[in-house]
Simulated scan of single mutants.
Amino acid sequence: MYCIVYRFKLSDPSKDTEARFVETWSGITDYLKRECDALGSRLHQGSDGVFFAYAQWPSIEVFERSAAHEPKLEFVEMRLDWADLCEPTEIVFAGSLLADLSS
């Protein structure tokens, strides 16, 4: 499994933009699962309002192959909404799974 950890901050934080962000993040995740074989993601928010998420992929190869995917209009619209909501996304970490102690 391959994982990418992201950090993002809303450009104009409010309850409305937080709700839109969660909805957009969820839509993008669903799209990537459906169209690009992603495994899903988890979204967290710190007490300072900053969001962190990690996206899971079966392998780095599947993740890299997703970059060549021709996006459908629904994805483009979600990415435009994302750009309107957030400052540039920061990748905190990307790497492959070594051990899974979650169960």
Score class of each variant (00 low, 15 high):
residue 5 V to P: 03
residue 30 D to K: 07
residue 47 S to F: 05
residue 14 S to M: 03
residue 46 G to Y: 06
residue 89 T to L: 13
residue 72 K to N: 00
residue 101 L to K: 04
residue 56 Q to S: 14
residue 14 S to I: 01
residue 45 Q to F: 07
residue 62 V to H: 03
residue 95 G to P: 08
residue 19 A to H: 09
residue 63 F to S: 07
residue 18 E to L: 11
residue 42 R to C: 04
residue 33 K to R: 05
residue 96 S to V: 09
residue 79 R to G: 01
residue 89 T to E: 11
residue 1 M to A: 14
residue 67 A to N: 14
residue 64 E to N: 08
residue 58 P to I: 02
residue 50 V to S: 04
residue 52 F to D: 05
residue 75 F to M: 11
residue 61 E to M: 06
residue 89 T to P: 01
residue 87 E to K: 05
residue 1 M to C: 11
residue 83 A to W: 03
residue 47 S to T: 09
residue 24 T to L: 03
residue 43 L to H: 05
residue 21 F to W: 04
residue 17 T to K: 08
residue 68 A to R: 04
residue 23 E to S: 15
residue 12 D to E: 15
residue 68 A to V: 02
residue 5 V to A: 14
residue 12 D to A: 14
residue 78 M to S: 00
residue 19 A to N: 06
residue 2 Y to D: 02
residue 102 S to C: 08
residue 99 A to N: 06
residue 1 M to P: 13
residue 96 S to T: 15
residue 32 L to W: 01
residue 17 T to V: 01
residue 33 K to G: 07
residue 60 I to H: 09
residue 84 D to S: 11
residue 35 E to T: 00
residue 97 L to S: 07
residue 37 D to Q: 10
residue 41 S to H: 03
residue 66 S to G: 00
residue 77 E to Q: 15
residue 28 I to S: 04
residue 77 E to C: 03
residue 83 A to T: 13
residue 50 V to I: 15
residue 33 K to M: 12
residue 67 A to T: 11
residue 39 L to F: 08
residue 87 E to G: 01
residue 15 K to I: 10
residue 55 A to R: 01
residue 86 C to H: 00
residue 84 D to F: 01
residue 60 I to N: 05
residue 42 R to M: 12
residue 67 A to L: 15
residue 32 L to A: 01
residue 22 V to M: 07
residue 57 W to C: 05
residue 99 A to C: 06
residue 12 D to V: 12
residue 88 P to E: 06
residue 55 A to Y: 11
residue 9 K to A: 06
residue 1 M to W: 10
residue 47 S to W: 07
residue 69 H to E: 08
residue 1 M to K: 15
residue 80 L to D: 10
residue 19 A to F: 02
residue 7 R to K: 14
residue 52 F to L: 14
